[in-house]
């Protein structure tokens, strides 16, 4: 049906972690149902830019190709999102593809999301269940809590919320909205609750929850529709209680 025969891409490339980024244009043959990943694969097969020069193929990361792993996050036409679900037919051309520069760029569209995993370690985003004896089954959880936790559990550490947040940048040490959602996830679990003060202490440290400025971009940008701003406000309430409890108890 479509009359277009080529796809015009403008890709922000970078040869290495310490080199300057530059833009490169590509015109590739159009096929039906293409997404950004299949467009990159096409460039891989025939790595020639718009000037006809043979160039190094574009580097990117991807795994699942169904928007559940978070590996192929990049900025497409100004919006951070997954390349696998960015369908060419639904994008305005020329399509501008850039790496998520909130993170260190390794090469082309490959970024290092390591800071997110450091943040998860910092806020202890897990439930300690290992003991030298059988700890027994976890307490049952109410259906309504399970539903809330299911939404939060969809986080795939893709980094889109950090890229979207105006308060995550080189001048700030904010660990990012996703970490707050994960603290909610584990603090609302019947077994996880037992360590909730440890997580809260870690979350309220420098660069934590308080760095949120309520722009609410995270909830708009999250590809999994995680209620991040609700998680943030709910955690703010917990933090208020936590603060007063600490002042009045110790």
């Amino acid at each position: 049906m479509s009359e277009q025969t080529t796809v015009h891409l403008i890709v922000t490339r970078q040869d290495g972690p310490d080199t300057a980024p530059y833009k490169e244009e590509f015109h590739i043959p159009y096929r039906k149902n293409m997404n950004i990943i299949s467009a990159f694969m096409e460039i891989q097969r025939n790595p020639v830019n718009s000037n006809g020069d043979k160039v190094a193929p574009i580097q990117w990361e991807s795994n699942c190709l169904e928007e559940v792993c978070g590996a192929c996050s990049m900025v497409i036409n100004g919006k951070p999102r997954q390349a696998c679900t960015a369908l060419i037919d639904k994008l305005t051309q020329p399509i501008r593809v850039e790496p998520m520069q909130t993170f260190p760029v390794m090469r082309d569209l490959v970024i290092d999301r390591g800071r997110m995993f450091d943040a998860l370690k910092r806020v202890k985003a897990w439930i300690p269940i290992d003991g030298s004896y059988d700890l027994g089954p976890a307490p049952r959880q109410a259906e309504i809590d399970r539903q809330w936790r299911y939404e939060l559990s969809k986080c795939m550490t893709c980094g889109v919320c950090l890229q979207a947040c105006p308060n995550v940048n080189s001048d700030s040490n904010f660990i990012g909205p996703f970490a707050v959602g994960q603290v909610q996830l584990f603090n609302s679990h019947p077994t996880g609750k037992m360590n909730k003060d440890e997580r809260m202490d870690a979350l309220l440290d420098d660069g934590g929850l308080q760095e949120c400025g309520n722009s609410q971009n995270c909830v708009q940008a999250c590809p999994k529709g995680i209620p991040l701003t609700t998680a943030i406000a709910a955690t703010n309430r917990e933090a208020t209680k936590h603060m007063f409890k600490k002042w009045l108890t110790f």
């Binding site: 100004g78 919006k79 979207a164 105006p166 308060n167 940048n169 001048d171 700030s172 400025g213 309520n214 722009s215 609410q216 971009n217 708009q220 940008a221």
Partner: peptide, 24 residues
């Protein structure tokens, strides 16, 4: 200090709340 720490991005995220964030 808070105001100059933010990196406003209303061009890419033109939502009501993001404008409020900037205007604040």
């Amino acid at each position: 200090y808070i105001a100059f720490q933010a990196k406003n991005n209303v061009n890419n995220f033109g939502t009501f709340r993001n404008y409020m964030f900037m205007l604040q």
